[in-house]
Simulated assay, not measured.
Amino acid sequence: MASTTWDPVGYLRFGDERARPFTDLLARVGAREPLTVVDLGCGEGALTASLAARWPGARVTGVDSSPQMLAAAAAHAVPGRVRFVEGDVRGWQPEEPVDVLVTNAVLHWVPGHADLLRRWAGQLAPGGWLAAQVPGNWRAPTHALLAALCRSPRWSALAGDAAPAADAVLDPAGYLEVLTGAGLAADAWETTYLHVLHGEDPVLGWVRSTVLRPVLDRLGDDDAAELTAEYAAALRAAYPRRPDGTTLLPFRRVFAVGHAAG
């Protein structure tokens, strides 16, 4: 995760669509006046800053391992209220018990992240909240086609280890078991969003800043262009353009919220 170069501008091309799951996740967090709020994997910081608007009395910290994302997030910093720090979520430790801990669209990059959730549950303050959202579309054409491409004879030596894994995340019941096993009262669910995309190769544009990024980081320019062209053709067949020029992208996401006693 730390070795991948992330692109804040490309990520924000679909900023509204990517913000919806964050909003839906936080709608299930019932904290009223938290003092310490942490966003693990904060990205470019706009959604992290929205937490300070929701809870004006809180100190909000965004943590991310990408220098590119943190450079963009600096625009949202507010002295004494909102700060951004560099760190890997796998080794992050709080300075004090946390009232609200959020991790949005991050844990699918971390194998074995159920153990992280258990650890974070133990770092909540009494009455604290843990909220997580992960993409759940790892068996969708966007990911299945890329995985098959990475493992094909042409690309396996160069990009086979970057192929998306179908078991990268749990289903809602799995996350419910993790959080309740960690002593939290838990709620878990899934939602499939139907995004209406515009322009040329919009599904390719979507994945360029997410699942395709680690693959391209392993390739030189010529190889990256060749793989991208092959992948783009497969995506066009899987997600055909509609008569009105738009393209539909169904996108499943998995949510889990836990509440500590106290």
Rank of each mutant, 00 (worst) to 15 (best):
N137W: 11
W138P: 02
A182M: 02
A188E: 01
A185W: 01
R139K: 14
P153G: 00
A159T: 12
W155I: 08
V196W: 11
R139D: 15
A186I: 01
G181A: 03
A173Y: 01
A144M: 06
A165I: 00
G199Q: 11
A159H: 06
A157E: 15
G183I: 01
R139I: 10
T191K: 12
A159Q: 08
R154V: 13
D171R: 14
A166V: 10
G136F: 08
A148P: 00
A163K: 04
A165V: 13
A188F: 02
L170T: 04
H198C: 13
P141K: 12
P172V: 03
S152H: 02
L176V: 00
G199N: 09
E200C: 10
S152C: 03
W138A: 05
A188R: 01
L194T: 14
L145P: 11
L197Q: 03
R151D: 07
A148H: 13
G136E: 05
P141V: 12
A140C: 11
S156F: 01
N137P: 08
T142L: 13
L170D: 11
G174P: 10
L146S: 03
P172A: 03
G136H: 07
W138R: 07
L146M: 06
H143F: 10
A166P: 10
L179R: 05
G199L: 09
E200W: 07
A157V: 02
A162D: 08
G174M: 08
V196G: 13
A159W: 05
E200M: 08
A186W: 01
A168S: 14
D161I: 06
A163H: 06
A147Q: 06
W155G: 06
A185K: 13
W155R: 07
A163F: 07
C150G: 04
G183S: 03
A162P: 08
E190F: 03
L176D: 14
E190C: 10
T192S: 06
P153Y: 00
L149C: 09
T180N: 00
A168Y: 08
A148V: 01
W189R: 05
A166Q: 09
R154F: 00
D161Y: 09
T191G: 00
A165W: 00
A163I: 08
L176F: 03
P164D: 09
E190I: 04
H198V: 15
L149Y: 05
L194A: 15
T180D: 05
L194S: 14
R151Y: 01
W155F: 10
A148N: 13
G181V: 04
N137G: 09
A173I: 00
H198A: 15
Y175F: 11
P153V: 00
H143Q: 12
E177G: 11
E190T: 11
H195Q: 12
L158R: 15
G174H: 07
E177I: 00
G181Y: 06
P172E: 04
L176N: 00
Y175A: 04
A140F: 11
W155E: 03
A147S: 15
R151A: 10
A166C: 00
L146H: 05
L194F: 11
G160K: 07
V178Q: 06
G174Q: 07
A163M: 09
L197C: 08
G160C: 11
E177Q: 14
A182S: 11
A144C: 07
V169D: 02
G160Q: 09
A159V: 13
H198W: 13
A159I: 11
W189D: 03
